[in-house]
């Protein structure tokens, strides 16, 4: 069945929670090359007035799209993806943080679909205008 068949605006296609720890941030720093110390040093984060060590915005953007990628299951690919970073994700050294992502169909046309993401920590959203364009793969 084609990716777009039966897809309806408002339909939730994926939902997943991502537990982050400080280990997640160190791993992302190494993989991405972003070694800004506000992402792993409490003293530096405090010195620049932050409420704590923050997850890289690009880490949050990176995993927030994964529920969509898994839902696509090689039937399509992400051809456009954008977010606004509206609120930092503070990662407690012991408790970490949990980011919950919900992916909802926002629009469907002949060549693809737009999936909108919400990403929340507790009651607060951390990404704005998080939009994913998915395009079917031929064959």
């Amino acid at each position: 069945m084609s990716l777009l068949d039966g897809l309806a605006v408002g339909q939730v296609v994926a939902e997943r929670s991502f537990p982050l720890t400080r280990d997640s941030l160190v791993r992302y720093a190494g993989a991405s090359g972003d070694f800004n110390p506000i992402h792993y040093r409490d003293d530096v984060a405090a010195a620049v007035g932050l409420p704590g060590v923050l997850a890289h915005g690009m880490l949050t953007m990176g995993f927030a799209v994964q529920p969509v990628v898994d839902w696509l299951d090689a039937r399509g690919w992400v051809s456009d993806y954008q977010v606004r970073f509206t609120r930092p994700v503070v990662v407690d050294p012991q408790l970490g943080a949990v980011v919950t992502v919900v992916a909802t169909v926002a629009a469907v046309d002949e060549t693809g679909a737009r999936i909108d993401l919400t990403a929340t920590v507790g009651e607060q959203t951390v990404l704005g205008k998080a939009q994913v364009r998915v395009t079917p793969l031929a064959g």
């Binding site: 991502f18 791993r27 992302y28 993989a31 995993f63 994964q66 299951d73």
Partner: peptide, 13 residues
């Protein structure tokens, strides 16, 4: 593969 692990990208491709 390394970047995929860091962003929880587990899809086989």
């Amino acid at each position: 593969r390394e970047f995929s692990r860091a962003v929880f990208a587990t899809a086989p491709m």
